[in-house]
Computed example of a mutant assay.
Amino acid sequence: MAAISHTPLDKQLSQLTLRERKKLRTRVTIRRATYRLITEQGYEATTVEQIAEASEVSPSTVFRYFPTKEDIVLTDAYDPAIASSLRERPAGESPLASLRAVMAEVLERSMAHEPEELTQRTRLLVRVPAVRARMTETMSVTAKLLADVLAERTGRRPDDLDLRVFVGAVLSALREVTLHWGEHGCQGNPVALLHQALDGLEGGLRL
């Protein structure tokens, strides 16, 4: 897949402050070291101490950036820019279209720039119960972040029930797409699967 450039997410990443860029580089270094160690010796055998040594930081620094080992696997470089990218979607665009565009862009960037990490992360989600459980926990944080932005765009309260259900349904669709892709050997295009899932969510399940 060709490299993606000049997208809304690129813009948000380019607007990070120097301090934010340094933090992002540290997170990326830790994450890449983690994947390398997991490839060499497996998930369970990889310790935070080993990750810290391979990243040339202290274990406390690893924990400062990632509360758990599972978070290192699940967190990617684009998380800090997602809310801002969603906030910049066209004002008249439907919430589903906006979320679809932002999530598809993140997947496309991952496929273009970090295909091996995306594949390894997905396989770990399928194979390691602790990673899958942590993903479910962290989805609540992501859901609140997205609900806050959509509340601004729609004039609803962030705790509006319909809004919470909507965001939860979209994120659950993304989770199931990820697991489905991993369970089928990470074959095919996950972006196409995402569009398929959201089309089904929008149109309803036909008997």
Rank of each mutant, 00 (worst) to 15 (best):
A2F: 06
P8Y: 06
L18Q: 14
R19A: 14
R19M: 12
R21S: 12
K22F: 13
T26S: 03
R27P: 01
V28S: 03
T34N: 11
R36T: 13
R36A: 13
T39H: 15
Q41E: 08
E44V: 10
I51G: 11
A52L: 08
E56H: 14
S58C: 04
V62L: 08
R64E: 05
P67D: 04
K69W: 10
Y78E: 00
P80M: 03
A81Y: 08
E88I: 06
A91D: 06
P95I: 06
S98R: 07
S98V: 02
A101E: 03
E105F: 01
E105A: 01
S110F: 02
S110V: 01
A112L: 00
T122C: 07
R123L: 13
V126H: 04
P129W: 01
A130I: 07
A130M: 04
E137N: 07
M139W: 05
V141P: 02
L145F: 06
D148C: 06
V149E: 04
E152S: 08
T154I: 07
T154R: 10
P158C: 12
P158I: 09
D159K: 15
D159M: 15
R164D: 12
A169W: 01
L171I: 01
L171A: 00
L174M: 02
T178D: 03
L179N: 01
W181C: 01
E183S: 08
G185Q: 11
Q187Y: 13
P190F: 04
A192K: 10
A192Q: 08
H195A: 00
Q196C: 05
Q196W: 05
D199W: 04
G203D: 07
G204K: 07
L207D: 14
